[in-house]
Write a protein that binds this DNA or RNA. Structure first.
Lengths: 149, 149
DNA sequence: TTTTTAGTTCTTTAATAACAGAACTAAAAA
DNA sequence: TTTTTAGTTCTGTTATTAAAGAACTAAAAA
């Protein structure tokens, strides 16, 4: 039940953590996600997670709760025991992408407002802005199309 | 030369700052970007920026240098004087989008590695992962196509 | 009922980052 | 040469955040 990761798997976890951290994910959270991605165990207990990542129980608990709230993690019980078995909810990733796109859209709308109220004298600048908004709008619509399927 | 923003413009600046901060941009940096977007002045001196945003000189200087290094800002001189006139480089936005896509691609490659090494027993989970990677790959390629024009 | 276990909460520590204020540098203007 | 000005750098304060450790709660097992 409690597999030990081999060298290659550990490295893979590390590399995933590195990339996730570049998106402002905390090490503990990144570690849990990476571990549950790479580990052959579909689900793990808090103790197993804690042990593999060498975190304190409170930190592990804290990170797990954040991930639960974000919908990235869920849990079930085996034989109705009280111990929780946590697993990754891969579907949540899609929702994250959608949320990001919503913020992008919001920014786009604001940039459109900017363009509307700019003086004509700065037409060169305005033109660049218009190009940017158009580009971002295209990106947005094509992404939404793909995601909504 | 030193326009005072009207009420509507100030609100627009504030709203842009709010959105930028959600992407982990510091208030000072978000403020400078928003100000230079909204202000009718195509370029501003450090003093004008500082005054409008009510920042200290050192903070303003610090934020400006970060933006310069990121390519979001550039400057020129008027009549060869030593005073710098800073302006937004809208083109840099495109490079940011490209950089983000590169990270997304990196994550995608790692997820592919994950899929390759997963045991067959967790096929349900694996399937979700494969779907995710495929989706993200499509998003990536369509975005790249749009950006590379 | 007592013990064990899973999970939570509270408190403290350490690291980081934003920002302000003051001291400093370099160069143009008087 | 002295003064003014633009910009930089240094130092200190404050706020935020991650994480650890210990105390605590609740419930199942002995």
């Amino acid at each position: 039940m409690n597999y030990q990761l081999n060298e290659q798997q550990l490295q893979l976890v590390e590399r995933i953590v590195t990339v996730l951290e570049q998106d402002n994910t905390s090490p503990a959270i990144a570690g849990i996600v990476a571990l549950l991605l790479v580990s052959p165990c579909r689900e793990m207990t808090i103790d197993e997670i804690q042990e593999q990542l060498q975190l304190s129980k409170s930190s592990t608990n804290h990170a797990i709760n954040i991930l639960l709230q974000a919908g990235m993690l869920s849990y079930g019980h085996k034989l109705l025991a009280r111990k929780r078995y946590y697993r990754l909810e891969v579907r949540a990733w899609r929702d994250f992408l959608l949320k990001k796109l919503k913020r992008q859209k919001k920014l786009n709308e604001l940039l459109s407002e900017v363009i509307e109220q700019r003086p004509e004298e700065t037409h060169e600048f305005n033109k660049h802005l218009i190009d940017l908004v158009n580009l971002m709008e295209q990106l947005h619509t094509s992404s939404i199309q793909l995601l909504k399927k």
